[in-house]
Design a protein around this nucleic acid. Structure first.
Lengths: 211, 211
DNA sequence: CAATTGGATGAAGAAAGCTTCAGTTTCGGA
DNA sequence: TCCGAAACTGAAGCTTTCTTCATCCAATTG
């Protein structure tokens, strides 16, 4: 059994009856919980047990451990990307300040929803596939942010993608920082305040410099 | 053998003769190279082979795999912290703009020195110890940045730790972003430019707001 | 109410990696 | 040169975990 997680595959079997759909959901949910509880030491057996099914069932829907983890990662990423995209779209045409505020709120909230799980996921997904999934998500989020910035009522950004990318990574860095220092809610709030200041200052500077 | 890496221990044996010191160095160097080449799938046997010694020798100096990885991580962190600290100390009493420029240059250079290895290390160190090592380094770097900021000739920061923490995590986020997108040198340069803009804008805003 | 298909089980097989230790080699001082 | 200590070797043991498959249970259909 290679330690390198195998190439990803579609679920081995597509759910046909209602109960199997529920089973797949239970497995994915269980995977997150085990990840939260045990970090990257999770085993397929333990995930199955937590889901209330047997290992065999797990392997009926996921050809291997890697595929399971990739699916979980993908779901998480989709959640964050959806939240950010929605927030961005709702802010088209607004002034920059309101944009940054909404963007940060959406991002932080989405990230902190399953933050510890997300970190464990990042750590696990060190095969190429995990990187690709993260990258696709980044691309999507950057596009959403850039599109929003382009419609700002009180500023214009010649290179909105560059600005969006910088913002995204700054948000990600600060979020991760708070998580890894594993401090409390106060740290999160303080971070969000500083992040807002940071974003406003940066966007203002970009406008002034014509970036 | 538990998949959870054991609690860290000092090297099992302290080098007494010259050759064993060289052996330890070779093992640590080999660990980095294997990490670069294979990511977290590294095995103790492969590390030993690359170092040109046998596994038994490795286990004479590191009680287990986790201890080896922790040592490597610690060395990397020390390198980054040293670089940043030196840069900060050399900028005491300077204007803020020069400070941020020097800080960013030092950080980016140190991080990119063994960047891919550092990412692999982050991923591996998911036991508590790894978090602690990273945290100690963060604390040290934040203190150095805060101390520097306090001496700025053209601004004053009532809460320099908060500002330093924000800066550090922003730098870390942007650096990581560039790495994970695995683009070329151009991306790194662009990032550094934007990071400088970001830092200057943020520090200016902090000064204005009295943060 | 069969029959057929989908779904679930879990013990056993197989593979991989960490770690040990009994034996060998090298070093450094007397 | 000789001897004790330090350093090194690497095959084998042990544990862990992934994955399979023969078998059983449940549901849907005609």
């Amino acid at each position: 059994m290679p330690r390198t997680l195998a190439t990803p595959l579609q679920p081995r079997k597509t759910p046909q009856q209602a109960r199997s759909g529920a089973t797949v959901d239970a497995i994915l949910e269980a995977a997150i919980q085990v990840l939260l509880a045990e970090g990257s030491t999770l085993t397929t057996t333990r995930v199955a047990a937590r889901a209330g099914v047997s290992v065999g069932t797990l392997y009926q829907y996921f050809p291997n451990k890697g595929s399971l983890l990739q699916t979980v990662l993908q779901h998480h990423m989709d959640g964050v990307a959806d939240a950010v995209q929605t927030a961005c779209e709702s802010m088209h045409g607004q002034p920059v300040r309101r944009m940054s505020e909404a963007l940060i709120a959406a991002f932080v909230q989405a990230k902190f929803r399953h933050l510890d799980a997300s970190v464990a996921l990042y750590r696990i997904s060190d095969d190429v596939q995990g990187k690709q999934i993260a990258l696709r998500m980044h691309t999507r989020v950057i596009a959403a942010i850039a599109a929003m910035l382009s419609t700002a009522s009180d500023a214009s950004f010649p290179t909105p993608e560059l600005v969006a990318e910088t913002l995204l990574h700054a948000m990600a860095g600060l979020s991760r920082g708070v998580l890894e220092s594993s401090q409390g809610l106060a740290a999160k709030t303080r971070m969000q305040t500083e992040l807002t200041r940071l974003a406003d200052a940066y966007l203002g500077s970009c406008t002034a410099a014509g970036i």
